[in-house]
Write a protein that binds this DNA or RNA. Structure first.
Lengths: 341, 341
DNA sequence: CAGGATCGTCGAAGCGCTTCGACGTAAGGA
DNA sequence: TCCTTACGTCGAAGCGCTTCGACGATCCTG
């Protein structure tokens, strides 16, 4: 229970060298002869030495920890968040950093606290909103940060995200190639648009622009997440008088609703893809698990997270990084889309 | 950008007291006169002082950070994990601690690393498996830990979990009261049982025991997570010759499958709850969102996490804690269950 | 073969905080 | 009134590490 931790002094004594020599072996910041290095390394292993994180942070002014700030409200779907978080941790570990988990409900004060106390060297913030109150703080903070998503004014910040406008357009392009003339986008719940969440709007804009470019007819609608609401909405779309008598393509950008949409179509007797082609913007596993497996544009949570951490590490090293990074979406064709009958 | 951080020495100078006095004001470990205290507190506020975490950890031998270790494979469903993680963070903050996020893929070495380096004071591990390889390490670690879930041998450890056996039994009791005589449990995918994941097995055991106690007929089956597999399985259950000609109650302990099960029943023309009563073991939001809203036993991820952190804090304070904590499940009646026709 | 570079190592000075013992000073007991 | 006790505060000694400057020893270069 109470074994005292091994210190660098004990390693030095065991190896017959100075404390500073051990430090230099471990950090590689000065050249050390191969024989000495080996002796030190052996002592480290034999004694089971682990440098004390606090002492290291104090002396070096680097904690080797980054903060990951989760959104308070789940604008993004929970599983994506999770995938995101694990990817941040994994990537950070590759750079020999650990991850401190924070929730957004501590607000700006929480960020200031961890930054000012030197608990963390930098920050990754997820799911930033358009008029995020933490953004001004980030600008004045000494510690570098990377945002997932784009606030209204992203000048001077480093932001990463999937290119949702392209994602929306990609879906439209795919349906256009298959000959669909009237298509609809079922997006996030209405409240998400009202909140000004960037990704939802950008998808819709990409959708609208592409529809116009192809000369199609298109409607972009919010989409709630209970079966009954989804059913009602889908039913209305196909009703005569909906304004889209020839509707044959559906784009669903709402993970929680995608299952409900398929259920609704089944109940309405619409076959996928014979009667209606469906494209989803969602993680691959959701698309794979659906029936039929959905043609989809992947939300590459892992890649976004990976890139975000890489950018943060670059900033920590004092390197210059681009302000905006948009990840190219990729469309995977599965069994839910087909040429228009 | 490069404002140096305020140190305790500057606060002391500003307030006209010794460094140690500031420290005692902040920690409350010695009595300080009200006037001095106020003067120091004012200086702290004026200067915007935040104690350096590394220095504090080094001097006090307490990092005020706990580790949260996520499972590598998502045995538990992702949204629950997420809910869990946020609850751990929130609770830890109430005790003035932060949370270091780790994934299980670093394995035992990762735990040893953060513990030996004094990065964290204690550990919370999620989704522990029956023969978890990290368990022996935890026993010999100086740092206290709390596990979510039970390994095969939990002696000497502190474990918390929902009482899944009771949860399974509760579902059966409810169906029994409604007069259902033949019922089935659709559980986790087969691979989860093979892996020896505790919660899946314990639910099944609770189910079986209760079925026996009520003199019902019951079948416990694994359940995959794609629509087609679920559909096949549900269809088979209702087929003549399945051995359950009077099947009228279904218990679903699989968040990913619960939507598919309802879809399947719709397609098979089975009405819920008129023809079949369905009880789910899942978070409330999933049950609420289903159509019809599902009678369910809640997985109180937040409560479990909260309790886990409380136990860890108690151990950090040197208090004794019970080895096993089982949280009582709660069944909420919604619209998916009804008396047998 | 002398002079300057270069290499490998050491010693010591912090980093910012907590905590221990000590030292007045004011309050309580005899 | 004198001695004890408690209270409030201070100074200094670390905590374990990194990093700077220094110093022999070895290596070239002319």
């Amino acid at each position: 229970m109470s074994r005292r931790a091994v210190t660098i002094a004990e390693v030095a004594r065991h190896a017959g060298v100075a404390v500073s020599t051990v430090s230099y072996v471990l950090s590689g910041k000065r050249t050390i002869s191969a024989t000495t290095r080996q002796r030190v390394l052996d002592s480290v292993r034999v004694l089971g030495y682990h440098p004390n994180a606090g002492a290291r942070a104090l002396a070096s002014k680097r904690a080797n920890v980054i903060a990951l700030v989760l959104p308070l409200r789940a604008g993004m779907h929970l599983p994506v968040l999770m995938q995101f978080a694990t990817s941040v941790v994994t990537t950070a570990r590759q750079y020999d950093h650990d991850v401190l988990l924070m929730t957004a409900d501590e607000g700006p004060d929480g960020l200031r606290r961890v930054a000012a106390s030197a608990l963390v060297d930098g920050l990754v913030l997820m799911d930033v909103e358009l008029d995020d109150q933490r953004v001004p703080l980030l600008r004045e903070l000494a510690e570098p940060s990377v945002l997932i998503g784009f606030p209204a004014d992203s000048a001077g910040l480093t932001c990463v995200d999937l290119d949702f406008a392209r994602a929306g357009a990609l879906c439209v392009d795919h349906l256009a190639e298959l000959g669909h003339r009237e298509i609809a986008l079922l997006g996030a719940p209405a409240v998400v648009y009202e909140r000004g969440t960037g990704f939802a709007r950008r998808t819709r804009e990409g959708f609208s622009a592409a529809v116009r470019a192809h000369g199609q007819t298109g409607a972009a609608l919010p989409c709630e997440e209970t079966f009954d609401e989804v059913f009602g909405e889908v039913k209305a779309l196909f009703e005569p008088g909906s304004g889209m008598p020839g509707l044959s393509g559906l784009i669903v950008h709402n993970e929680a609703a995608v299952g409900h949409v398929l259920s609704a179509l089944r109940v309405l007797g619409k076959r996928v893809p014979e009667d209606v082609s469906v494209v989803a913007i969602c993680p691959d596993d959701v698309a794979d698990r659906a029936s039929p497996p959905l043609t989809s544009v992947l939300i590459p949570a892992g890649d976004v997270a990976h890139r975000a951490v890489e950018l943060l590490m670059a900033k920590l090293d004092g390197r210059e990084v681009p302000e905006a990074t948009l990840l190219e979406p990729r469309l995977t064709v599965r069994e839910s889309t087909a040429p228009r009958a």
